[in-house]
Structure formats: structure tokens, C-alpha cells
Amino acid sequence: MKPLIKKLVEAVGPSGYEGAVRELVKKEVTRLADEVRVDALGNLIVRKGKQSAGGLRIMLSAHMDEIGIIATHIDEDGFVRFTTIGGVGPRTLIGGRVQFLNGAFGVIAGERLTATDPVHSFEKMFIDLGAAGKADCPVKVGDLAIFDRPMMDLGNRLVAKSMDDRISVAVLIETLRKLKNTPHELYFVFSTQEEVGTRGSTTAAYAIDPDLGIAVDVTATGDTPKGMRMAVKLGAGPAVKVRDGGMLSDPRVVRWMADTAEAAKIPYQLEILEAGFTDARAIQLTRAGVPVGCLSIPCRYVHSPSEMVDYNDVRHAVSLLTVLLSNPIHLQ
């Protein structure tokens, strides 16, 4: 899976502009699917399987988009001011590099800080593209960029920008590949605009009208020195989400996922994330309501340019999803 992961995490796809990622995914899934389509918001919707006894219409969602920045002003000297797309933190930016959709590269730098500034606010940062002046700047107001960083393979651990949520995109592709038989009508949704408020999955879920929704996304961990207190760690298996900042998983779905993992002897953890939410929130409130759950890939340093996941967690996520989707489902 590593070559696939590398291709995906190194692709450029900020929210709203997921085209390059979508093309990659399309190439991988077209032969495996019964139908592939792209909707009005750019979601890639991949259908596989027919409903038989005990079968449901199931929507799985992993988002293709990543956080980034957007240019707001080019000053007379050619420096670019920007605002953020999605939940970007100011602490990890200075010294980083960005790649614009048009191929231009730049570095993020900051104004001199006064004694009272603990950290650069976005207003005090700018991007230097090496331009001699405004006329020479290859970027205009409204252009988007992502944080440029190649993947680093540390053996069991992988580090990259946009593990959130390309790692789940890889998990869904691999699951689609592994899945031999299913009693369900499955919709693998590679969604858009999650980082700006689960917008793509909102409309995809409306169109699909599923009986069950499962988001696959990353979650934070509590296993770093003096870090956040959280009972999820890298390497202990994928996490079955109980709740996050925007959604309460359907308890029947949590039971089904946990019981299935135990029966299949796949390691898993139970997750409560106190801030942030996933596509599952949007799916749950669709139409007359949808039972939802979320399978999470534990990930350190989420929304930094160096997000770290455990490769075994990733493989176990594929195994668990494959078992979950191969058998009839009776939520109770």
C-alpha cells in the first residue's frame, strides 16, 4: 500500500480544488467498481455491489481535500498575504513551504514579532515567492496553495502532509480491492470540502440516501510527551469512534464495529475526540436521519505538515472494513 499512499499524500488538493486527487483515485478504482461518477461539488462516488438478504445501502466516506491557504493580497514588493482554508494552526507554518495550484512555490515567513506576540498570527505572516515585485509575482488574489512536504517512510510509521485524510482514501481504495463479495450496495465516496465543514459529504449523502454511513478519517492521539489526554495511541489498531466534537456515533454501529473487530481478532480502540468532527456528522443529519459511525486512523500532529500514522493501524483498518462489509448487518 505504501506506493499508493505516497502518491496520494503528495498530490495537491486543497478544499474545493480536489481535481488532481480525484484523477488519481479514479484511475485506481474504475476497474473495481460498478459505477463511478462525479457530482456537482466534485465528490467522486463509486458504487459496488447489489443488495441481497441482510444487505444495506451503505455510504463510506473519506475526504480527498486537505487544508491549505489562499492568497488575499499581493503587495507592491511581491509578497503574498493569505488566509487559511480549513483548520490551519499558526505554530507550524513559519519556515514551511507552499505549492500553489498553478505550480508556483514559495516559503512562509513572518514580520518581526513584538515582545507581546507569543506566536505569529496569520496577519503577520506572508509568502515569499522570490518575486522582484507585484508585476513579477506568479500568484494572484484567490489562488490556493497547500503545504509542500514529501512523504517520509520510517518503516512502521509514515509521515506526510495530508495523511488527513488521504490515508483513509488509501484505506477505502484498498478495501475496495480486497472486497470479494458483499451483500450490500456500497457507495465509496471520496468526498470534497470536509476541512471547511463537511460540505461534500452533505450533498453526497443526500444523493445516495444510505441506510448506514461510515466515515473513515484520522483522529488525534494522547501518546506524545505531555500531550493531550486522550485514550488513543498509535499502533493499537484503528479506533472506533464513540463521539467527537460534532457527532455522537450511533451506539448500534459502535457495537457492531467493536464486536466484529473482536470476533475477527483485529486490534481496535474506542475513541472519544473532544474537538473536531468528520463526514459522519453530515451523513447522520441527512434527510430523515442515518445511523452512522466512524473508523479512525490514529494520527499524531494532525493539521501539521508532518502527520504521522502507524502502518499496522492502516492495514488493520483495511482488514476490519473488509470484514464489516463482507457480511450481512443487523444493527441492534
Binding site: 457530482d39 456537482a40 465528490n43 488575499t72 450533498t203 453526497a204 443526500y206
Partner: peptide, 23 residues
Amino acid sequence: QIRQPGGGGTDAGAIHKQRAGIP
């Protein structure tokens, strides 16, 4: 002119999320 990207919003924010999505 291109409005500077940033905060604020218009009716478009609600419209595009209706039904199966609206450009």
C-alpha cells in the same frame, strides 16, 4: 474585482449544500 478571501458569507453558503449539491 476578486473579493479578498476570508470571513463573511452570503446566501450561497446555504444554497450550495442543498439536495445533491448546487454549483
